[in-house]
């Protein structure tokens, strides 16, 4: 029997998820009815619907779960959560698992939802406000310079329209406006991160 096999179906990974993943303590309460899997409007696009993810966690498939792109596919429609007869916060668990995988660096590279979320976050914490112009540009150019130019040209008409309607200020490219107390913001985020690290087992 391989090392992998003997470790399978032990509760180690289930305990890890329970401890480190947001709402992870709910995973053990799943009764495998499959209503979530049947209710997901994008279910066919997922490699593993929530029911399967929960079973994989119990089966100790740590690597497979954390490297899966399934939970990144969730669009937060909350259909599964409304229907779950055991009232598991499935949507939140999916996000929790995605975040945990990301923090561990196990999440699939270049996963679009993950890339967008990362750009959004990095943009936001710079000045405490989302700079729509730089965020859009960063999105256009995330797949390389040539693709970026193509994306920008495609969106040209929309951009001018937004400018005309005063919904987009080209001067924002210079840095844009910020929250008043930037030092305070930085301190707040640092504290939040510290708390999260402690909760999710990343504290040094």
């Amino acid at each position: 029997m391989s090392e992998q096999a003997t470790a399978r179906y032990t509760n180690d990974f289930l305990r890890e998820v329970e401890k480190n993943v947001e709402e992870g303590h709910w995973v053990k309460m799943c009764m495998q009815c499959g209503v979530c899997a049947g209710s997901c409007p994008l279910g066919s696009a997922w490699a593993h619907p929530p029911q399967e993810i929960f079973m994989m966690i119990r089966a100790g498939k740590r690597e497979e779960v954390l490297t899966s792109d399934s939970m990144w596919m969730c669009t937060s429609c909350y259909n599964c959560m409304v229907r779950c007869p055991r009232q598991l916060p499935i949507t939140h668990i999916m996000h929790g698992l995605a975040n945990y995988a990301h923090r561990l660096g196990l999440s699939p590279k270049g996963q679009p939802t993950q890339a967008t979320a990362t750009l959004f976050w990095n943009n936001l914490i710079k000045k405490g406000r989302v700079n729509e112009l730089t965020f859009s540009l960063a999105l256009y150019f995330k797949d390389g310079f040539v693709q970026g130019i193509k994306n920008a040209l495609n969106m040209q008409a929309v951009g001018f329209g937004l400018m005309k309607a005063k919904r987009l200020n080209p001067m924002e490219i210079l840095g844009g406006h910020a929250v008043k107390d930037q030092a305070g913001l930085k301190a707040m985020i640092a504290k939040a991160r510290e708390i999260e690290d402690r909760k999710k087992g990343f504290a040094k």
């Binding site: 289930l14 495998q32 055991r86």
Partner: peptide, 13 residues
């Protein structure tokens, strides 16, 4: 059954 799950008894179909 729920109480068993709460206590960490796992169930495999």
């Amino acid at each position: 059954y729920r109480s068993g799950q709460q206590k960490g008894v796992t169930f495999t179909k």
